[in-house]
Design a protein around this nucleic acid. Structure first.
Lengths: 117, 117
DNA sequence: CGGTATCCCCCTGGATACTG
DNA sequence: CAGTATCCAGGGGGATACCG
């Protein structure tokens, strides 16, 4: 039997690692294909993108849809379960923005949000 | 200049890793001394406890107070900035509990919350 | 009791090349 | 375009012993 000694472990187990939340962040607004994600999640490699997507899929946070055509088209979208994470993630985003504002001088740190969807 | 390409990176940078949120979780309710934390954060080693506490301190999420006496007494408590993370963390806790309930059969996974403060 | 100092394993995550 | 397969470095994290 798996035992957690603190209930925040559960969420962090699923959201932890370098890329999980970033991918989720971009998928929350609208489904996206692999290449779009690759572009939006700055710095991620092909391998890590696919690997992370698989893990999120296993945890039922996102789903993978294949459109049979040439060239192949695959789209990822968040499940209902994944959407239920949004309020928490949004709070974390806001907290982060606020943190940057009051911690660093102007121009020292910058947050770019690439997607305009 | 440090650049973030997604604003959730900021929070995850500070909360990421294996122990950060767990420690924060326990400190949110009431200040605690090192030995208490060592007991509450199940499985953490002395080294990782101290190391993680230092990092949280650097990021101004917690503070460290020394009471001059023998034997030495040190207490850690969350700053105002750290407290402002609570709403987000609480949502993540709730989400995790719900996730476990609807994902696993009874007895397959268990969440123990050790502290009764 | 609280903290430091080593030593070291292993796993995450990166680089690259290759398929359908 | 989407994905797989290797190979491999770095560092996060663990075990242990030792100080004030």
């Amino acid at each position: 039997m798996k035992i957690y000694y603190c209930d925040i472990e559960v969420a962090m187990q699923i959201l932890g690692g370098k890329w999980k939340t970033q991918i989720l962040y971009h998928l929350t607004k609208t489904p996206k294909r692999t290449s779009e994600l690759k572009r939006l999640v700055q710095g991620i490699t092909q391998k890590m993108l696919i690997q992370t997507l698989r893990e999120l899929e296993t945890d039922r946070i996102i789903t993978r849809t294949i459109y049979q055509q040439v060239p192949p088209r695959v789209e990822y979208s968040v499940t209902e379960l994944g959407q239920s994470l949004e309020p928490a993630l949004r709070l974390l985003c806001q907290w982060g923005q606020n943190y940057v504002e009051e911690t660093f001088a102007k121009g020292e740190v910058q947050i770019l949000n690439l997607d305009k969807n």
